[in-house]
Computed example of a mutant assay.
Amino acid sequence: MTENASAAATPLRVLLVDDHAMVRSGFRMMLSVEEDLEVVGEAANGAEAVVVARDVRPDVVLMDVQMPVLDGIEATRRLVAEDLGRVVILTTFDRDDYLFDALDAGASGFLLKNAEPEQLVEAVRVVGTGSGILAPEVTRRVIERMTGERPAPPRPAPPGLERLTDREREVLVLVGRGLSNGEVARELFLGEATVKTHVSSCLAKLHLRDRVQAVVLAHQAGLITPAED
């Protein structure tokens, strides 16, 4: 456990959503040993997730995509609309198109179902403290599909884009390509703390919740072309 996690006054509250009880049980075992995390509920489908979330008010929701009654995408949209927790989508890559829909619905992160326990725990902590997270494999796979097999016409430039400095725009483009803060720092010969400041400024000026939304915006606004990826 990290020092910051140990110092947390209140455990992050987690809701597990998956139609397979064994999967939920596995995630519960992974998270229950962490003192700064608390599993406060489970749901077997999206509709049930919304009901449970209204009751337990989780900080983070680990959300499967393919479920009966109500899928994870629509459930994410409803949870975000009611501010019932930040959603991390768990994916197996079998339907990449779901990822784009979930991003539009407001998901704060993506993680592979076969991720190591440490990755799952870290994802919950990162998203629960207000940031977004994309597994590197997910980022690159999504970008490949977005720029290759699923080209889409650029949308009108979002409000605030003209307020970015040249450096902030450079940082936004690299974040949109899936680079971490450390990778952006090496690419631009900057300190990682400086990159973090630029990312925060971009999010504030563009009224984005996290870097996950920044990835989507960079592509939808036409800031990144297939050649750049």
Rank of each mutant, 00 (worst) to 15 (best):
A221G: 10
R211N: 03
D210L: 02
K196V: 03
L208Q: 04
K205P: 14
V215C: 01
K205Y: 13
R211L: 01
V195Q: 14
G222C: 02
E228Q: 12
H198D: 05
T225M: 08
C202Y: 11
S200W: 05
L208N: 07
H207C: 10
V212L: 00
A221R: 07
S200D: 15
R209W: 08
K196W: 00
V215I: 09
V199Q: 13
A218H: 05
S201L: 13
V216G: 00
P226E: 14
A193W: 07
V195L: 12
K205L: 15
G222I: 01
Q220G: 02
D229W: 12
I224A: 04
L208E: 12
D210F: 01
P226V: 14
T225L: 07
C202K: 07
E192K: 15
T194Y: 03
K205S: 14
H198M: 07
V215D: 01
V216N: 03
V199P: 08
A221S: 14
S201T: 14
V216D: 02
A218Y: 02
A218W: 02
L217D: 03
A193F: 13
Q213G: 09
L206G: 06
L206I: 10
A193I: 12
H219E: 01
D210S: 03
L208I: 04
V212C: 01
A214Y: 06
V216Q: 07
K205A: 14
I224P: 04
G222N: 03
T194H: 10
K205E: 11
L208D: 13
H198L: 10
T197L: 13
L208Y: 05
G222R: 03
A214F: 00
D229E: 10
L217R: 08
R211V: 12
E192G: 06
V199T: 14
Q213I: 01
H207R: 15
E228K: 02
H219D: 01
V195C: 06
T197Y: 03
Q220E: 15
V215K: 01
Q220P: 00
A218V: 04
S201V: 09
L206E: 08
E192T: 15
A221D: 04
D210I: 01
V212R: 00
R209H: 14
L223N: 06
L203T: 05
L223G: 10
H219S: 02
G222V: 01
T197R: 11
H198Y: 14
V212H: 00
T225R: 11
L217V: 15
Q213Y: 01
Q213C: 00
A193R: 13
T194G: 06
L217Q: 11
H207G: 09
E228I: 05
Q213D: 08
R211I: 02
A193H: 10
G222D: 02
L217Y: 05
S201N: 15
D229S: 13
L203S: 13
V199S: 12
H207F: 06
E228G: 02
L217N: 04
D229T: 12
K196H: 06
A227H: 09
H207M: 09
